[in-house]
Design a protein around this nucleic acid. Structure first.
Length: 702
DNA sequence: GAGCACTGC
């Protein structure tokens, strides 16, 4: 798929259809809604009815005894329920009270995100009248509060539970595992499902609860049904069962655009204004796909608000607020502030508001119907960010962001027939991402044949092959696909992508572990350079030059960190140099962790004291699969895949004379294929450090 | 001279 240039015209679009004749009668039934210029909505009164009918097929949740009864009878319970049903907070308490966490075992509840694990633990501890860390605890990376002897309910991140299997392969410290928010289908939740299926066969006394907000429960139930189909014909021998939990959310009215909308940013803004003029109290949440769209919508809304206050004195003020991941923390907090009396908040957000954050007081939701998604292409070894239609599950989730405190209303900027054509679920992440880290994790957990591993949704074979190839080139796997010792085993223990862990583990050999831990840490945090507007932007660029070196971006980052430490890690230094203090502090933390891990492998902290060559060779030992060479056409091409790529304009090497060979840390397919975080490399180093990978490829370069 | 959704170990 070709990239998009950022203008909405070139984006892939839903094929909107004109309403057919059949729909004409339906259209007449619509309540009297004035056309909002191009966008008109119809109310679909059948929505809630059809959802109820679906639910009738499933057993209905009654009380705690019902759950306990089912868990005694079945090994796996698939719990379907909307958010707000209290399953995440209540069910573990039921089980703890009923004595399921006895003999020093625990009930483990996984979450995809760190904040969820910690905040749920403290909430449940409150509800149980316990001290956090005693009966109820949590564990996330860098932070844990639980007692191995007294804790009965432990909330933890998915990734951490996988790591616990390294020391406790059958998870014997748990009597019940509850995987929560499984409908999000993160790589980790899919890996956990595959691994837990194996564990359940070996530990008949382990109970599993899979908790999901959507209706793909049957598929999961079948995956965990371990009944031997040959010896047992009766479904009464099933080992898994579905239970539906009713939610407590308010009804949500669904409106669809009658006609396809030509420009969903403009139409979202029009819809906001229409709601503001005709509808009652309540804040508005708008879903768009990216930062640029959000900023454009905010600008348009500000213009409209200006016009409003100029022409007619509106009783209610409109307060547009942007929300996306790279927004400074201070601005992000504004969306959580209480809406002033007599005002209406409009939060224009990316997908961050679909699951990661919850804003209270939202009544109206406007959904553009698209999402930006990362997609790994094993042919080119590139990641792309593509705008694709959302799934039905996403549409429901977005709609549900309103109606949490009062009846809600959602405006979908697409006709209803388009909704019907959406996929029920988005493809799980494991089917569309780089799997090299996941494969390494599975190998160290004893999964020798990755291709035959029972994934709930198998990833494309090519993605697995591509991951195995890179791991072999890095020396983590041997010819037969086994983990090498000690390099491969150690790499699997690092919570980092394989290129990074390889670089760190060989840094001792180059005598530069001090510098390499810094570089790895700086690459882990988000961009430390602040991007101010206007005059300040020019000053920021000049200041940045102090740190820049012709060896590339990684050494530049090293300079930034070294100066930061020399200054005494002060906020003042950061604001003077247009650097992000919080991110540098986080890099500092990460470096400490990496130094600690290296010490465990008896790799001492050493500095090569200003000699750059060992550092650059060490970088090359990890990142050689990401080499590009200068083609005679004047453009860079990748060694793997021979793709034409462009250094990103933020790179220090962008404006400098082009070196013959470069290494990149990141490649992304946008309007063009950009490579970022670059380091100059000598071709003879590549041949020396990775001859098997490199030699056969050098002939056709010149 | 670009501009990239979101997590996590």
């Amino acid at each position: 798929m070709s990239g998009h240039s950022g203008s909405s015209e070139s984006r892939p679009k839903l094929k909107f259809l004109k309403p057919s004749d059949d729909d004409a009668t339906w259209e007449q039934d619509k309540p009297d809604v004035d056309p909002i210029n191009a966008t008109t909505f119809v109310y679909n009164p059948y929505y809630s009815l059809s959802l109820d009918q679906q639910k009738k097929k499933l057993p209905i949740y009654q009380n705690r005894d019902h759950i306990i009864y089912l868990l005694e009878k079945y090994q796996t319970l698939v719990l379907v329920g909307e958010t707000g049903s209290g399953k995440t907070t209540q069910v573990p308490q039921y089980l703890a009270e009923a004595g399921w966490a006895s003999d020093g075992t625990m009930i483990g509840v996984t979450q995809p995100r760190r904040v969820a694990a910690t905040s749920l633990a403290s909430r449940v501890a409150d509800e149980m009248g316990a001290i956090l860390g005693d009966e109820v605890g949590y564990a996330i990376r860098f932070d844990e509060k639980f007692s191995p002897t007294r804790t009965k309910v432990k909330y933890l991140t998915e990734g951490l539970l996988i790591r616990e299997m390294l020391g406790d392969p059958l998870l014997r410290q748990y009597s019940v595992i509850m995987l929560d928010e499984v409908h999000e289908r993160t790589v980790n939740s899919d890996i956990l499902m595959g691994l837990l299926r194996k564990i359940l066969k070996k530990r008949k006394n382990l109970k599993l609860i899979i908790s999901s907000a959507t209706m793909d429960a049957e598929e999961i139930q079948r995956f965990f049904n371990l009944r031997d189909k040959k010896s047992s014909k009766s479904s009464s021998d099933d080992t898994s069962v579905i239970l539906s939990v009713s939610g407590r959310s308010y009804p949500i009215e669904i409106c669809y655009a009658v006609d396809p909308v030509p420009d969903y940013v403009k139409d979202a803004v029009k819809t906001v204004m229409k709601i503001h003029e005709t509808e009652g109290k309540g804040d508005i949440l708008v879903f768009l796909t990216g930062q640029e769209e959000v900023d454009n919508a905010i600008t348009l809304l500000q213009q409209h608000t200006q016009n409003l206050s100029d022409t007619n004195k509106k009783a209610m003020e409109l307060l547009p607020l942007p929300m996306y991941g790279s927004l400074p923390a201070r601005d992000q907090l504004r969306v959580f502030q209480h809406t002033p009396k007599g005002a209406r908040k409009v939060v224009v957000a990316t997908n961050i508001a679909e699951t990661s954050i919850t804003i209270s007081g939202i009544v109206y939701v406007i959904d553009c119907g698209f999402v930006k998604m990362r997609w790994f292409n094993p042919d080119t070894f590139t990641d792309s960010l593509v705008v694709v239609p959302i799934s039905k599950a996403s549409a429901e989730q977005r709609a549900g962001r309103g109606g949490r405190t009062a009846p809600g209303k959602v405006y979908r900027l697409y006709p209803e027939p388009e909704y019907e054509k959406l996929d029920p679920q988005s493809p799980p992440e494991i089917q569309r991402c780089d799997l090299s880290f996941a494969v390494l994790q599975l190998k160290v957990l004893g999964i020798d044949n990755i291709v035959r591993f029972n994934f709930p949704s198998p990833p494309p074979a090519q993605n697995l092959v591509s991951a195995v190839e890179v791991l072999f080139a890095l020396g983590a796997l041997d010819r037969s696909g086994g983990l090498t010792s000690p390099l491969g085993e150690r790499m699997a223990e690092f919570p980092l992508p394989p290129c990074y862990s390889k670089m760190l583990l060989v840094s001792g050999d180059f005598g530069c572990s001090d510098e390499i831990t810094t570089i790895a840490a700086m690459l882990q945090v988000e961009n430390v350079f602040q991007l101010p507007f206007g005059q300040a932007a020019i000053r920021a660029r000049i200041v940045k030059r102090k740190f820049e070196v012709e060896e590339g971006d990684l050494i530049t980052l090293l300079n930034v960190y070294t100066s930061f430490v020399k200054s005494g890690r002060t906020k003042h230094f950061c604001s003077q140099n247009f650097l992000n203090f919080k991110r540098l502090k986080r890099a500092d933390e990460m470096k400490k962790q990496m130094v600690k891990m290296l010490r465990r492998f008896e790799i001492p902290l050493e500095s090569c004291k200003g000699n750059l060559e060992p550092i650059m060779k060490c970088i090359a030992s990890g990142f050689f699969p990401n080499a590009v060479y200068l083609h005679h056409s004047g453009y860079y091409r990748t060694v793997r895949g021979d793709l034409v790529v462009y250094p990103h304009p933020t790179s220090v090497l962008y404006a400098l004379p082009q070196p013959q060979y470069l290494l990149f840390s990141e490649i992304i397919h946008l309007s063009q294929i950009y490579i970022r975080d670059l380091t100059v490399v000598k071709p003879e180093w590549l041949e020396e450090l990775a001859p098997h990978f490199y030699k056969k490829r050098t002939e056709h370069f010149h």
